[in-house]
């Protein structure tokens, strides 16, 4: 490479870095146990070949916000976006350590887990107010979507004017009802998937590229 070409490249790289908007951060939000980390892991595995964090049937498995940078997703239509995926702790208005004791966790560990969970929820709310550019809102479609947390969080997201895609997760289960979720949030696109088995995730990727692009 000649000196001139190298200098030219350097300058164009510098200019790009100067003018490029920082990567769009997409937060995966929703109540505990909806399948947020399962989906975050799938996205990262499908497009980078890595993982974000552990998954568990015990609620509040994720107690720290985790960000995975520069993931390029391509839809079937050929459109691409590059985003940061932000996996967040499940949001709730109440946490009782006894809930964890019921899962067979000993008291000391349960108290610690509860404390971390409260910090995690506060952190997730903070990110939503400051650092998130778009939201994938995840719901377990076998459960009632009219929970107060969902109504509050979707209201908070709307008030910040962030684009939101609602995911009706766990559509592999027999009592899944994406229709109930659609009726609860008619103002937003709802996509039924199984983050666990991968049903319909291509549709989600396609929607993400057009919605967050």
């Amino acid at each position: 490479m000649t000196f001139l070409v190298r200098t030219k490249r350097k300058i164009s790289g510098l200019l790009k870095a100067l003018f490029k908007k920082r990567t769009c951060r997409i937060g995966i939000y929703g109540p505990p146990n909806a399948g947020k980390t399962t989906l975050a892991n799938r996205i990262v595995r499908d497009w980078v070949g890595d993982a974000v964090g552990p998954v568990s049937e015990v609620p509040h498995e994720t107690r720290r916000v985790r960000r995975k940078e520069d993931i390029t997703i391509t839809g079937q239509n050929g459109n691409s976006i590059t985003i940061d995926i932000v996996d967040t702790p499940g949001v709730t208005t109440k946490i009782d350590y006894n809930e964890f004791v019921e899962y067979g966790i000993d008291k000391e560990e349960a108290v610690k887990r509860a404390r971390e969970a409260t910090e995690g929820v506060a952190e997730a709310m903070h990110w939503l107010r400051e650092d998130i550019d778009g939201v994938v809102y995840m719901l377990d479609s076998t459960l009632d979507p009219f929970q107060q947390v969902n109504i509050m969080l979707v209201g908070i997201i709307e008030s910040r004017k962030l684009p939101v895609l609602i995911v009706a997760n766990k559509n592999d289960l027999p009592d899944a009802s994406p229709a109930r979720i659609k009726s609860a949030f008619p103002q937003h696109p709802v996509i039924a998937i199984s983050g666990l088995e991968g049903n319909n995730v291509e549709e989600l990727y396609e929607q993400m590229t057009s919605y967050f692009g």
Partner: peptide, 17 residues
């Protein structure tokens, strides 16, 4: 909505075993 967001955050801080 912003007040709700802060209410959740401060509620979390007040929770004690």
């Amino acid at each position: 909505p912003d007040e709700q967001s802060k209410l959740i955050e401060i509620t979390m801080r007040e929770i004690a075993p």
